[in-house]
Design a protein around this nucleic acid. Structure first.
Lengths: 127, 127
DNA sequence: GGACATACTTACATTTTTTATAGTATCCTA
DNA sequence: TAGGATACTATAAAAAATGTAAGTATGTCC
């Protein structure tokens, strides 16, 4: 995470691809270990930071924080802070974020199919 | 690429997530800079190594090779070698690979929408 | 014999992502 | 005064992904 180096070839390649392939643009946004699961969790409604953390047991607070910020920057989720003590912060999918839900569902179905497929065809690699 | 370290926390996290979230499982397979574009290119039919390379101008041979191998390992594409000189190798989506095409199309549409959305809402980050 | 074409592979370097560990601020309760 | 709850942030290190540059094999053409 942190910040991508704008002089790297990697940056240039992504930029170029994302510009003329919207599917790559999308996958740049949804890529990364946790973005998709977070959206999945939020598909059923708003959640607090701590609730998300509990749903994603292995995530570090740093990662959760980074991913949430990234998704927020991309306007996929919104963040509402309530001035209470202890603080309460709620995350929720935006309109465009909700548009993602059916796609994620399809990806999930494809994943299931694929698991069956490779099981039948004797493949052992997972990643 | 190369090989993921099976003792790392990262490995454990992916494994755990992929096991009970098929959408994450899918995104592990399709993640990476080039996997989705390659599938996009192959959506219209089989292509040779060199043809793919020309379609993806900035890709290095190493990356193309790695990604193709990965997709092949996951049974998303098939590889046919013809015993000619110079050699001819053709890549083609498998059945389950073709199932991906509509999903990629939707991702593309979502990407377009998202681009409009952030343009309207004055967001400047791209990644 | 030497250059050309194709489809790679290998060793190494750099960049990007993810994890580990510890700390911050605030108010409430015991 | 200490400890808990919440939502983070800072810094460093490990791991993974990507890029650079060069090399391999084989037969055909000149």
């Amino acid at each position: 995470m942190s910040r991508i180096k704008e002089t790297s070839t990697n940056f240039a390649n992504r930029q170029a691809l994302a510009d003329n392939c919207s599917e790559v643009y999308a996958s740049n946004i949804l890529g990364g270990q946790w973005a998709i699961v977070i959206c999945s969790c939020l598909a059923t409604g708003k959640l607090r930071f701590g609730e998300l953390k509990r749903l994603l047991p292995n995530i570090t607070e740093r990662m959760l924080s980074l991913q949430l910020r990234k998704l927020e920057d991309h306007k996929i989720i919104s963040r509402s802070v309530y001035a209470e003590v202890p603080p309460r912060v709620e995350y929720e999918l935006t309109d465009i974020g909700y548009e993602l839900v059916p796609i994620i569902k399809q990806l999930e179905q494809w994943g299931e199919m694929h698991k069956q497929y490779v099981k039948k065809n004797d493949c052992d690699n997972v990643f």
